[in-house]
């Protein structure tokens, strides 16, 4: 029972840190003004054009594709596979299971391997390519190791040492509805969940902020219309007040 309590408390904590930390960061990005128009041109000249540009960045990693085909391949496979895996995991969180979660199940099975392969290839670059080795710090290695750990334990549970999914689901639904149930004491599952919580704890304090960050990047999210529309940050508007010349407004 002690184990279940520890995991339950940690889960609440991890969720709180993740949600509050991320919300705080997003609020900071949203509130910090962008004083100048700096889209990397050629850039869309309409707001809907910007939505398309951003979608291409987020879904296809367009700029990365232009930059380096191998990095793009490994990175894109890893992210898409992770997305499928996470969608597949929704079956532990809701009852009855949403219909679309069933649709991703078949892909999800193999996605776990694709995710692991992508991560391994990305990690390999950090040793094999001199330039990448130079820019890699301990945290960059650990981040990959953490995700590899999550994927590996997940796959082991899926294909080698099955865990008791029914009780696990009861435990999780119990957390959601404040009706606590015991956690199955499988070492693989405990490690898997431990690492997932660690990921949630560090998310708002690490380079994983690239996920919300990309949406706030002025070089990608600004409309190219500076001649048509005057763009002015609040702190910069204050400087206009000092205009001394005659004929100004």
């Amino acid at each position: 029972m002690l184990l279940s309590t520890i995991y339950a408390v940690l889960f609440y904590l991890a969720t709180a840190v993740f949600v509050v930390g991320l919300a705080y960061r997003i609020r900071l990005y949203a509130r910090t003004p962008a004083p100048l128009k700096i889209p990397t041109t050629p850039a869309p000249v309409t707001q809907s054009g910007v939505v398309v540009r951003m979608a291409k960045e987020v879904v296809l990693f367009e700029s990365l594709f232009k930059a380096n085909k191998w990095t793009w391949l490994f990175g894109w496979v890893f992210h898409i596979a992770m997305l499928l895996v996470i969608l597949r995991h929704f079956r532990y969180f809701n009852e009855p299971i949403w219909f679309w979660v069933n649709w991703v199940q078949p892909f999800g099975m193999y996605a776990g391997f694709a995710m692991l392969a992508g991560l391994a290839a990305l990690w390999g670059r950090r040793f094999l390519v001199e330039r990448i080795r130079y820019i890699t710090g301990p945290s960059d290695h650990l981040m990959l190791l953490l995700l590899i750990g999550i994927a590996a334990t997940g796959l082991l549970m899926r294909f080698v040492e099955h865990t008791d999914i029914i009780s696990l689901k009861a435990f999780i639904l119990g957390l959601i509805y404040f009706d606590w149930q015991p956690i199955p004491a499988d070492p693989l599952l405990l490690v898997h969940l431990g690492l997932v919580m660690l990921l949630m704890f560090i998310f708002p304090f690490s380079k994983l902020l690239h996920a919300p960050g990309v949406f706030f990047s002025p070089t990608r999210n600004q409309v190219d219309n500076p001649r048509e529309q005057r763009h002015l940050a609040p702190w910069a508007a204050a400087l206009d007040a000092d205009r001394t010349e005659a004929g100004g407004e």
Binding site: L28, Y29, P35, A67, N68, H210, A233
Partner: peptide, 24 residues
């Protein structure tokens, strides 16, 4: 400057050290 420029704030946080820029 971090308070005045969203670009600076977001770019300080966001780099994942993917290395795409290294040879550009």
């Amino acid at each position: 400057l971090l308070k005045k420029s969203r670009a600076l704030q977001v770019y300080m946080d966001g780099c994942v050290k993917c290395g795409a820029c290294t040879d550009k």
